[in-house]
């Protein structure tokens, strides 16, 4: 067993410094499209290259609704792009920032428990959410803990479009949690149903079933984006807008 201790020590500290410092290692995030201004962008956006209609035309360029972007890269890999590609991962936003009543309060800023529910997620969201518990990201250092029982949970983290069979299970998990509680939806499927919903088999996202407080866009959101979303949920990071507007547009 000493071998394992030595092996662990030898690896050194690999954990990201985020949120204290920026994290810019290549490959931690795929980036995402951002709205571009100008007539050309507006025209290209109107041409409809985006299969999920996340990119639309606005008065002075394009507008990107991150709740629908599934990272197909078709917008940037086509000849006539309507968007810029933007690095980074601080993507999470609040659904209704004014609803102070649902906030967890100061007591939960340092330590809280997360119950994760897979409501029909593909393996990618599963893979990314599994990473947050691992040395590179290590949510424990930020006071987040995963719990197997909703009875101890303060945050409900949900991925997937909410399939028909999981609808009731999700509702039940939410109801089993004691207040105060917050719901964080991660991944485009959980935000809008993605390419699976709404349909007869899958819903149009988590907010159809339980009230969502924080949304983490991305397909899948990389581990740092999930981390950011959790920090937004406990008010340790400011939320970001869920749509990207071209400069000069009215919000």
């Amino acid at each position: 067993m000493t071998r394992w201790v030595w092996e662990g020590l030898k690896s050194g500290i690999r954990t990201t410094r985020y949120p204290a410092r920026e994290e810019q290692t290549p490959g931690v995030s795929p980036g995402r499209p951002a709205a571009r201004s100008g007539e050309e962008a507006r025209r290209n956006a109107a041409a409809g290259v985006c299969p999920t209609d996340a990119i639309r035309a606005s008065a002075n360029g394009s507008v990107v609704d991150h709740r629908h972007c599934i990272h197909c890269f078709r917008c940037v890999r086509s000849d006539s792009s309507a968007v810029d590609w933007q690095a980074g991962f601080e993507w999470a936003g609040e659904t209704e920032p004014e609803r102070m009543a649902r906030r967890l309060g100061r007591l939960f800023r340092r330590s809280l428990n997360i119950r994760f529910v897979d409501a029909g997620a593909c393996g990618a969201c599963m893979g990314e959410v599994r990473q947050i518990d691992n040395p590179y990201y290590n949510i424990h250092r930020l006071g987040f803990f995963l719990t197997p029982t909703p009875r101890n949970a303060d945050i409900l983290l949900v991925a997937g479009p909410v399939t028909r069979a999981m609808r009731h299970a999700l509702r039940e998990t939410y109801e089993a949690m004691p207040p105060p509680k917050r719901v964080v939806a991660m991944g485009v499927c959980a935000l809008s149903g993605g390419i699976f919903g709404p349909s007869a088999a899958a819903g149009g996202g988590v907010s159809d079933v339980v009230p969502v407080d924080v949304m983490i866009p991305g397909c899948p959101p990389p581990p740092l984006a999930i981390l950011h979303g959790l920090l937004v949920a406990v008010e340790r990071k400011p939320p970001q807008p869920l749509t990207s507007l071209a400069e000069g547009s009215a919000p």
Binding site: M166, A176, P178, P179
Partner: peptide, 12 residues
């Protein structure tokens, strides 16, 4: 004190 149904892993 809130009373809830017993937690059975979302089984219903």
């Amino acid at each position: 004190v809130a009373r809830r149904a017993v937690w059975v892993g979302g089984l219903g």
